[in-house]
């Protein structure tokens, strides 16, 4: 078990964004988190990465309770995420964005940086090499010196994934990675996520693109109004009456249109 979410509840000033939600993710899985807008999906990501602390409940990662520890420490433990609204370091180059992602994988401090010690230079070389590999993986190596905000939208989304991968996570959280992508870009995103999975990284994904979710995920949890509505394989979810009523029927119309 990579991640166990146990009875998570989150209240924002009397309104429950999440009510007693539990699920667990196995190693190597691609796990989907779906539901209509406002169902609490991104809130769940914010609970796991502790951007907000849950009102009650626990997050267990590799058997360790990580509820309430600092976000940067959660990253050090091996969880990294992307954002629904892209949050790159927009004034930095593509390469430097990925290198910041590798922060937790390196340790040079002020002293060794200023004096360029041998260890620091070696580390910097390795970080550049690894970052370039990741840029190649997401198809952005030729843009490595481009300032992030000048990248095309789909490229920015892929850069966010590369940046998250640079922290060497065992669990990658993707928040609507296909949003705003055309069909071709979505296809290459599918390949990318599959490659990530083949490297032994577990993936938790929020996505509205149903065909992609159904094709990609091993298992899916459906949230509705902050509560867990269903969980199962894509087939089970597609045939679940409650899900169809609450969400899929309506959403598929949109997708088809």
């Amino acid at each position: 078990m990579v991640l166990e979410v146990k009875n998570i509840t989150k209240n924002f000033g009397g309104i429950s964004a999440l009510k007693d939600v539990s699920f667990s993710i196995n190693k190597g899985e691609i796990f989907g988190l779906i539901g209509p807008n406002g169902a609490g999906k991104t809130t769940m990501f914010n609970m796991i990465t502790n951007i907000y602390e849950p009102t009650s409940g626990e997050i267990i990662f590799h058997g360790e309770n990580i509820t309430g520890i600092k976000p940067y420490k959660i990253t050090e433990k091996g969880i990294c995420r992307t954002y629904q609204n892209i949050r790159l370091f927009s004034q930095m180059s593509t390469l430097h964005n990925v290198m910041v992602g590798g922060h937790s994988q390196s340790q040079s401090g002020v002293f060794s940086s200023v004096f360029r010690t041998k260890a620091q230079r070696t580390e910097e070389q390795q970080l550049i090499k690894k970052s370039e590999e990741l840029l190649e993986l997401v198809g952005l190596l030729e843009h490595k010196d481009t300032i992030a905000e000048n990248l095309a939208y789909g490229q920015q989304r892929r850069l966010e994934i590369a940046r998250a991968l640079a922290s060497n996570p065992s669990l990658l959280l993707l928040d609507e990675p296909a949003a705003g992508m055309n069909e071709k870009e979505t296809d290459s995103l599918y390949d990318l996520i599959k490659t990530v999975q083949s490297r032994g990284i577990t993936v938790l994904i929020i996505e509205h693109d149903m065909p992609l979710v159904m094709k990609l995920c091993d298992r899916i949890t459906v949230l509705n109004f902050g509560e867990k509505l269903a969980e199962g394989t894509p087939e089970e979810i597609q045939n679940n009456e409650a899900v169809i009523e609450a969400y899929l029927g309506k959403e598929e119309d949109e997708v088809d249109a």
């Binding site: 990465t49 951007i51 600092k70 976000p71 940067y72 990253t75 050090e76 990294c80 995420r81 954002y83 949050r87 790159l88 370091f89 927009s90 004034q91 930095m92 910041v100 992602g101 922060h103 937790s104 940046r163 998250a164 922290s167």
Partner: peptide, 14 residues
Amino acid sequence: SINQDDKAAESMGI
């Protein structure tokens, strides 16, 4: 990175 987006920086392990 903190200057440009401190929340994103923190979730990159900084």
